[in-house]
Every structure is written in C-alpha cells, then in structure tokens.
Design a protein around this nucleic acid. Sequence first.
DNA 1: GCCAACGTTGGC
DNA 2: GCCAACGTTGGC
Length: 157
Amino acid sequence: MSHRYWLMKSEPDAFGIDDLEVSKNQTTHWEGVRNYQARNFMRDDMKPGDLIFFYHSNANPLAIVGTMKVASEPYPDPSQFDPNSKYFDEKATEENPRWYLVDVKLVEKFDKPVLRDDIKKEESLSDMLLIKRGSRLSIQPVQEHEWNRVMEMAHSA
DNA sequence: GCCAACGTTGGC
DNA sequence: GCCAACGTTGGC
C-alpha cells in the first residue's frame, strides 16, 4: 500500500516556496535530506505524480504554503559526492550512494497559507505527524482525508 | 535564544 | 550490541 500524498519541510531562509516558484520549470532537486527515514520515503515509496504539501519550518508564519508534485524517479543526491557542498558525505560513493532524492515541481502556491496553528485546532487533522509532539521528520506521509481537509482550508474564503 | 526530542556516532 | 555523548531539528 503506497502513499500518494506527502508533506515536505523546508526553512524558507534556505529554500522557500518563492524560490521554487522562480526555479527553472518551477522544479528543483530536493537535495540535502540526510535522514534515513525521509530518504527511504523518497527512494522507496514516492512515485512521479504523487502530491506534496510544501511546509515552511523555522519560519513566520509556520504554515503549509502550497503544493508540489513528484517530478522524477528517485536518483542519488549529487551533493553527497561534492566535497564543496555542505551536504558532502565522505562515506558515500558513486557505486554505493547513501542519499537519494526526487525532483519536485510546483503545483500551487496558496493565496492563503494554512497555518500550523489552524491545523492544530482542527479535530480531523489531529493525527497529522506534523503536529505530533517531537515529530521532526522532514518528509512525512499524509492521509487522503488530511490532504482533502487542508486543501479545503486553503481555498475557503 | 532556549531546550526537548530525536538521530547518529563511536568507545567499549 | 549497548549506551553515553554529541549534534540537529524545529516549535516556542
């Protein structure tokens, strides 16, 4: 049973939805994930066309700011091989990569971001990993009903 | 800026 | 393979 909906975090100071909007083809390599669980989601479970919430962490406001879709098959994250990259991993080799990524493409930037505070108030979203205490996963699966509810909140007047 | 929660590393 | 020490995440 594979997931079709995801949530990915990024700090807008490093890379926010406005950066994605101006990227070539509004697409980017989601580089720099160095957590095995998050990597496994990208490497093993994501399929092209899967839909993704873009979440701004360490930001003001904390919010889901739009949607993206998976735009490639998984492939090794090139930054792990680059000694000049802050994501360089000396234990990774071309023959035996450690880190994988997918390309993501912007689908929609919300006119009205869905605030973390509002998600926390929403009974039907109480199981979202995002608001679970201590949850730090930077890539998370999202349930279909959670996806639908957040989309309603984003588009309500 | 603080710090709780979590993941990783490395000595044993 | 345990676990203490350390580094990071990320909300507050």
